Simulated scan of single mutants.
Amino acid sequence: MPRRKPRKIGAGYRIAVLVLRPLLMALTRRHWRGSENLPAHGGFIIVVNHISHADPFTFGHFLYDNGHLPRYLTKSTVFETPFFGWIVRNAQQIPVYRETADAQKAYRAAIEALDRGQCVAIYPEGTLTRDPQLWPMSGKTGAARLALATGYPLLPAAQWGAHEILPPYAHRPRLLPRHDVYVTLGPPVDLSAFEGQELTGPVLTAATDTVMDAITALLAEIRQEPPPAVRWDPRTSALPRTGNPARRANTRRKAAG
């Protein structure tokens, strides 16, 4: 049974709930599983695959209706946008300063949120998946590091369907017909094999692979099909790490021409 919805949510979240939740209720059919895995109390980390710029809203809907307000780690440029930037700031989302001297600020802010008993939501892929079939890519090590350094539970989740509302890098949503949206939440990932070890690159990579395996298994359950034998790795791909890869490819072709 879903938990009672949060009461003290702040101005930013209140506006998002008043505006977005009725739209999502009207435009989606929700297939949610695994809410019993949510901790009864205390902070926790939740990791989920990233398939659409709409999925923070659909996944946030799942968490809100189950009694939690996610604190997403969000790229810092979102905080600079008119109106929406005000919402994410007032909803206490956590800015991520990619590849800058301020990158550690997000890590410290995440720990502070966990210590306050909050839910910290992380996209371990760091961006929309580049996999052609939208399977999870190789992940970055931040979520595993956070879990191993703090001891807070790390829960894996998989989502599917938000890409039908807003395909990757599309600007116009497809609101009709009504879309099926799936979220499945698993039990905490067992990272005990890595506890007590020095958090070196190889240890964090292995722990992250364990995390991504858990997310991928949940997505395979939703999609009812096997995942690729080899996970897409942006480090070995010619595609750019961030941004619309199709746009970058077109830009390179024009420059070459």
Score class of each variant (00 low, 15 high):
Leu204Phe: 13
Val203Pro: 12
Val120Ser: 06
Trp160Gly: 01
Val183Trp: 08
Pro153Leu: 14
His179Val: 02
Arg108Asp: 14
Ile222Tyr: 08
Val120Glu: 03
Ala229Gly: 12
Ala193Tyr: 00
Ala193Glu: 14
Gln133Lys: 08
Trp135Leu: 06
His163Gln: 15
Ala157Ser: 14
Ile165Trp: 04
Pro226Phe: 00
Tyr182Asp: 07
Gly142Tyr: 05
Gly151Asp: 12
Asp131Val: 07
Asp102Gly: 01
Ile222Gln: 09
Tyr123Val: 03
Arg98Cys: 01
Tyr182Glu: 06
Leu166Arg: 07
Arg145Thr: 03
Gly142Ile: 09
Gln93Tyr: 04
Gln197Ser: 06
Arg174Tyr: 04
Thr100Gln: 06
Tyr152Met: 08
Ile111Asp: 03
Leu166Gly: 03
Ala193Lys: 06
Glu164Gln: 10
Lys140Glu: 07
Pro177Ile: 07
Ala149Asp: 15
His179Thr: 07
Tyr182Leu: 01
Asp233Ile: 07
Ala110Pro: 03
Val189Thr: 02
Met212Asn: 04
Asp233Met: 05
Ile111Leu: 10
Leu114Asn: 05
Ala149His: 10
Ala113Arg: 13
Leu185Ser: 04
Pro188Ile: 06
Ala217Met: 02
Arg174Gly: 01
Pro187Cys: 06
Asp115Met: 15
Ala207Phe: 10
Arg178Thr: 14
Thr216Gln: 11
Arg89Asp: 12
Trp135Glu: 04
Leu185Gly: 11
Ala103Arg: 15
Asp131Met: 02
Thr184Ile: 11
Leu219Tyr: 02
Leu114Gly: 08
Leu175Lys: 13
Arg98Glu: 05
Ala207Pro: 12
Gly126Gln: 06
Arg174Ala: 04
Ala109Leu: 13
Ala149Gln: 12
Gln224Cys: 01
Thr200Glu: 10
Ala229Ser: 14
Asp209Ile: 09
Gln133Pro: 00
His171Val: 13
Gln104Cys: 02
Ala91Lys: 03
Trp160Ile: 03
Gln104Leu: 14
Arg145Asp: 04
Gln133His: 14
Ala162Glu: 09
Gly186Asp: 03
Gly139His: 13
Pro136Asp: 11
Glu198Cys: 02
Gly186Ile: 03
Val181Gly: 05
Glu112Cys: 01
Asn90Leu: 10
Thr141Arg: 15
Pro188Glu: 12
Asp209Met: 11
Asp180Cys: 04
Arg172Thr: 15
Pro228Val: 13
Thr216Glu: 11
Trp232Phe: 15
Ala144Met: 09
Pro124Tyr: 12
Val230Phe: 13
Pro95Asn: 09
Leu128Trp: 10
Leu155His: 09
Pro167Cys: 02
Cys119Ser: 11
Gln159Asn: 15
Ile94Leu: 11
Arg172Glu: 08
Ala109Thr: 11
Val211Thr: 03
